[in-house]
Design a binder for these strands. Structure first.
Lengths: 218, 218, 218, 218
DNA sequence: GATGAATGAGATTTCATTCAT
DNA sequence: AATGAATGAAATCTCATTCAT
């Protein structure tokens, strides 16, 4: 997993102390937002990071920018997880990704509601992530680990779905989502031709709809 | 489905106009919170309801109380949906409830994050709801519509899970959750004995954990 | 002289207490800004007005809006002074206006630097003011009280010029501008044909330039 | 005209690079304050000067000190202009000074409001300036270029007055003050004995008042 | 000596709640 | 009882000044 928020390659590198403070602020923000939600004050974030308010605002020009940096970092981590999963050739990469991405969401709860929305931060990363998901899905389907009806948007909805469980259980049962994910994966499997075989009858979420949800805010 | 928020039976009945204002406020709050989230101001709620701030605070002693009333109403509606599903005797009641409860969550998005937490509002309703879920699950399992490994906490997590999809898609694809719910239900089905049969290996969420999540805040 | 800030005719009238607070805030702002400049904090304004911060921000959505209201009020007062001066038929109206407008600037020092700039507040009033100045100038010239070379922009510059004296002297010699205005008016008088007769050689400020200075900010 | 801000004779001379930085900072400050007013941040000044914040604060212990240095420089320039005007023996020195001092104010707009106040910077220079103005006035009066009623404080108010025009017009009509100054000078001329002869009736600003305005802050 | 990051007090603005009309 | 104006604590953000590198 990469650092919380690597400096963009186009910006001049930060001085070492500045970069350190940036990391501390992102870590602190992750903690504070995870605990109190994104309504938590920036003062608390600065306090936890052990820096002054001015430092926070020197590194991030607004609270929103801080949140964006957090979200961007998670999205880059998601991309890296997808790359890693893509190295599997036996069709299990998708399942690996479902698990590792859920672990990531569980570890970074606190700004998950921004993770899947229009926000610009980490756009490239999330685009690559989605491309990898398509490939991983095809590979899984080729190996008959996932039935052919399933679309990549169905997989994307699994990430959203897991988020709902994580946010509800994070405090009291922080690994409960693992059980739920097993049920979800079971739902993706090819179906035996039996009495209650669950053929999907609803139309999948279209790519266009997905882009309206996660794509750039028009 | 019951009224949005019937006065508790222990309170003296409100005058008719007062009761009307109460309903208007709850309806307005549902709309406003659905659109702007619970960070929306109470002034906006009062404005949409067409009443003054004083009236809002006469009916609900705090913003929290207003939210609680909303949540309580939804919980009572959930209970009613469960009662209704319980009238089915063919084992399909659980599936009916999963769908109707999701429809309810979709219609009442805006305070869903409070729906499944500790809050006191509608406690009795949510307790009865859970009892009914247990019965419905047993009935479904008796009819082999759901495999025996599934526990009632697994079902509860389905509600939480659907919430994640609803919150992400409500604006752009308000029925997308239906497709996802199909996948989820497929995951509950008995598994054919084939290569990738999805035996659940993770331990289910325990009743105790569930109570720590949704039970009274200690 | 009109009230500090008459409610615009298009807005619904304020409740009496609200209107009172509005006036108190404008009066307080005039005092505070006059004393400490426009850098003075809004908290001080609220304190002097004897109201809470929230009240200030209920009446004026931003500090800028408060300043605009002040400026708009002064501009309306300027217009009224011009109207009043216009009732004179003996050519002395212009001189009356120069004096009364200076008195007004002296009484409302504190936001004078905004009085003559692009700001939108009281635009109609300032436009009428300028029209009246043209008429008053013509009348004065017809009576040979002002020499014919003088343009209305020369008169406008007299207002700006007086402001410079007022701002410098307001604390220590609050009526010093009266003497200076006499010198200025002497400079407007017809010139006897003597040795150092001051024919004006510089081109006057054009109307177009004047509008770029005081007109709407493009 | 002297350098922007020669080091005080009592300080040890600065190293050449330090002196250079000092000049660059003063030049930058003049530009920045002229454009954005004295509310402009010191960071902007340092940026324009091409030095770091630390350097700025090494040269000037506070923002106020920077402004004082600017003001002091302008005051020394004013003194030099007065000295230069004093070389004229034909009574036109005063008029020359009025023009050149106005040109200086126009060129150094940005801290004009501090130029004529209590601030200590360049006190000696401004004192000499005032002495020269008295001499120049007497000379002009001896040559009948200025009428005898005019006092030196009247002349001082002309500088303040011109400032008002410069500050209002500097962006859009940077030479408009020249026309106004002509009107002002006309107001100083001896008056023909005609109908509307402008005898001055207001008492002039006294020396004592002037000192309260521009003298040391008690 | 120069740099620019860090500081934190103070500024503006918001909003849940109270209260006079 | 209803209204909406008033309240003020708390939030976000700025910037003159200090300090570690």
């Amino acid at each position: 997993m990469t650092s919380l928020a690597p400096a963009s390659v186009t910006d001049k590198p930060l001085r070492r102390d500045a970069a350190e403070n940036r990391e501390r602020l992102l870590t602190a923000a992750a903690m504070v937002f995870a605990e109190h939600g994104m309504d938590a004050g920036v003062e608390e974030v600065a306090r936890v990071a052990g820096v002054g308010m001015g430092t926070l605002y020197r590194r991030f020009p607004s609270k929103q920018a801080l949140i964006d940096a957090l979200v961007g970092g998670i999205r880059e981590d998601l991309r890296d997880l997808a790359r890693s999963a893509a190295t599997r050739t036996d069709g299990t990469g998708l399942e690996e990704l479902l698990v590792t991405a859920a672990e990531l969401q569980a570890a970074r709860s606190g700004c998950l509601q921004r993770l899947w929305d229009h926000s610009e931060a980490g756009r490239d990363a999330i685009e690559e992530f989605r491309t990898r998901v398509v490939e991983l899905l095809h590979s899984a389907q080729a190996q008959r680990r996932v039935r052919s009806e399933i679309t990549s948007t169905d997989i994307t909805m699994v990430f959203w779905s897991v988020r709902g469980v994580i946010e509800t259980t994070r405090t009291e049962a922080p690994t409960a989502w693992r059980r739920h994910l097993e049920v979800l994966i079971a739902g993706l499997r090819p179906v035996a031709t039996d009495q209650f075989a669950s053929k999907l009858t609803e139309k999948p979420l279209t790519e266009a709809e997905l882009r309206r949800i996660t794509g750039p805010n028009r």
